[in-house]
Nucleic acid binder design. Structure first.
Length: 481
RNA sequence: CGGGGCGUAGCGCAGCCCGGUUAACGCGCCUGCUUUGGGAGCAGGAGAUCGCAGGUUCAAAUCCUGCCGCCCCGACCA
């Protein structure tokens, strides 16, 4: 940790990730295996993710609520596929109040069951529908292999749970929220995700159909960054969540659930970071700009700090999140490196020479060195120019990530090429007509899974790369986190 | 659960194989002075029941046994 640089991504991507998240003070390991402490800088990043999503949820008519973390064990057992999917990773509370409990409590791994329990009380008639509720909570899944943000035993997320009168409405809602996620990922996180449908094997335990936004990380692996499920009537049947129709009959409600977790933080890190550390998209960065003052003498210090304050105020007035590091403990060079490592999109340098010219220096994180540096920006334009720069950085990050994704996605027509593409840690786009078993076999042999059937399909038919039979859909295969 | 690694100061680590003064070094921290446009320098200082429990020995960070914990790599998963 005392060394200056970080391990280059090309040398060891996993080590780079582990080093960067800790040195940037996003996260630290908790005392219990697989748990993490999200430190203030990391939590601020998460808060901006929350804000971006929550705003979109509200805009699409959803309300926030809170359901208990403790779920009766019997609830989990009510939906067959759901039990099977989650049993191995449940955390059970067997003792409380100094006694053994009559029925163990599950620490929620997700809330479909307890929410249906409540919905079945609240929903009586078609007039009560739709129910559009979201909650921001922690969940626990006892994973074998954990990695900070990407997979931890406890994580934070939001889970939306809706109930509708018709199958069509539920399907519309599923896709609506998939699009909300894609919109957030692309426009706020600058991650060019591919929205698509999960294969039968990869879908959520208990869902009729699962949809995903898949993101490409800097090492070419895929990260499922958000999911939206059409639950059909699976849970409403298990929990007897019925409503009276306009015709006077009883029908089970049609449901959806959808979630984005702190995993998204890991996605942001791995989608944009470079060998100097993090690169955070301006819309999500805790500090969009950092001001680093430079001085030699005390007189200089006075005039420089005066200017720093003025610039800080003008950026704040423009609505930007800005931090001034006026500490005398480290020299400017140290600070430059530190804030680059922590991914601050824009650095503003202010020294005696700048004060003289009544101007400042801008340096953008996404273009290291002189190329991304501009001298002599008039101080009275700083706020406006900073906004423009940040918008441009946001745009450039998305463009760069999109180009990277496209360069690393290959159309594949035969198994041999498929193996090469997957071995090179790229994405393979293929025509697919295979079975579940064939999909499993490909995973065993190559490590690749179907990430999704992209919503954006070319249409028509072609022969499957694996079976040679006629296929009517295109799948994306890749190794995944 | 399998394989590997680690546990010694706040952090990173040396020492362990081959037992023997006061447990070394770097970063950080404290004091002072000089520095500050790309990770500063000098001087002084504080800080460690060597993961836990047994055992062997005149003597254990070091050897033996057991336990615990974490990390990394694989099989399950957002």
């Amino acid at each position: 940790m005392s060394d200056q640089g970080v391990i280059p991504r090309s040398e060891d991507y996993a080590a780079w990730y582990n080093e960067v998240i800790r040195r940037a003070q996003l996260v630290d390991y908790g005392p219990v295996k697989g748990t993490m402490v999200i430190r203030p800088y990391g939590f601020a990043l998460w808060e901006h993710i929350k804000e971006g999503l929550d705003r979109r949820f509200k805009e699409t008519g959803h309300e926030n609520a809170y359901f208990p973390m403790f779920i009766p064990y019997s609830f989990i057992q009510k939906e067959a596929e759901h039990v099977e999917g989650f049993s191995p990773e449940l955390a059970l509370v067997t003792h409380a109040g100094g006694k053994e409990l009559e029925e163990p409590l599950v620490v929620r791994p997700t809330s479909e069951t307890i929410i249906n329990h409540m919905y079945s009380k609240w929903i009586q008639s078609y007039r009560d529908l739709p129910v559009l509720i979201n909650q921001w909570v922690n969940v626990v899944r006892w994973e074998l292999r954990t990695r900070p943000f990407l997979r931890t035993s406890e994580f934070l997320w939001q889970e939306g749970h809706t109930a509708h009168a018709t199958q069509e409405e539920a399907q519309e809602e599923t896709i609506r929220m998939l699009n909300v996620y894609a919109d957030f990922a692309i426009n706020d996180a600058a991650i060019p995700v591919v929205p698509g449908r999960k294969s039968n094997i990869e879908k959520f335990a208990g869902a009729v159909a699962s949809y995903t936004i898949e993101a490409m990380m800097g090492d070419g692996k895929a990260l499922q960054s958000g999911t939206s499920h059409n639950l059909g009537q699976n849970f409403s049947k298990a929990f007897d969540t019925k409503f009276l129709t306009t015709e006077g009959g009883h029908e089970y409600v049609w449901q959806t659930s959808w979630g984005v977790s702190t995993r998204m933080v890991g996605g942001v890190i791995m989608a944009h970071g470079d060998d100097k550390g993090l690169i955070l998209p301006p819309r999500l960065a805790p500090h969009q700009a950092v001001i680093v003052p430079i001085w030699k003498s005390d007189e200089q210090k006075g005039s420089v700090l005066e200017m720093v304050e003025k610039i800080e105020r003008s950026l704040k007035d423009t609505g930007l999140r800005v931090k001034s590091d006026t500490s005398d403990q480290e020299n400017p060079g140290w600070k430059f490196n530190e804030y680059e490592m922590r991914g601050v999109p824009l650095r503003i340098e202010i020294g005696p020479k700048d004060v003289e010219k009544d101007a400042v220096v801008f340096a953008r994180r996404d273009r290291p060195g002189k190329e991304g540096k501009e001298f002599g920006i008039p101080s009275n334009e700083a706020g406006m120019r900073a906004s423009e720069w940040l918008e441009d950085i946001q745009k450039s990050l998305l463009e760069r990530a999109t180009q990277f994704r496209d360069e690393n996605t290959t159309d594949v027509e035969n198994v041999e090429t498929f193996r090469e593409v997957i071995a090179a840690s790229r994405w393979a786009r293929v025509w697919w007509s295979g079975t579940d078993d064939q999909e499993r076999k490909i995973k065993e042999e190559t490590g690749a899974t179907i990430r999704c059937f992209p919503i954006d399909q070319p249409g028509g038919k072609d022969s499957c790369f694996y079976t040679g039979e006629e296929a009517n859909k295109v799948a994306l295969f890749a190794k995944a986190y």
